[in-house]
Amino acid sequence: MSLKRAQELPDAGIITEAGNAVDFKTGDWRTYVPQFHEENCIHCMFCWIYCPDSAIDVDTSGDKPQMKGILLDHCKGCGICATECPPAAKGKAALVMVREEK
């Protein structure tokens, strides 16, 4: 984002574009990235609810929500999703943290 002049800004330092942090990419903070193994996914939405970064892509159009993968623009690679993934406890992890090649 190029820096604006004072006259171009809303006064009082107010932000009028609600939720514009979505334009700020935190994906490059990652060292590890969650790898999605769709075949193991039970679409329980645990990864979605526990994600601190709203980085789980879910399709809610159908009757049952479908986990689609990771929104890499914002995923910081913390691994909470993989830790909380219930199938992982049975050795069939749907999310596995792997070192990201850059």
Binding site: L3, K4, A6, L9, D11, G13, I15, T16, A18
Partner: peptide
């Protein structure tokens, strides 16, 4: 319908411009 964020963290890149706007008033 028009949500705003009031009083954000304003660092070296914008604080001065906001003070300019205030000074102008």
């Amino acid at each position: 319908a028009n949500p705003v964020t009031v009083g954000p963290l304003d660092l070296t890149d914008y604080y001065f411009e906001h003070k300019y706007s205030q000074l102008e008033a």
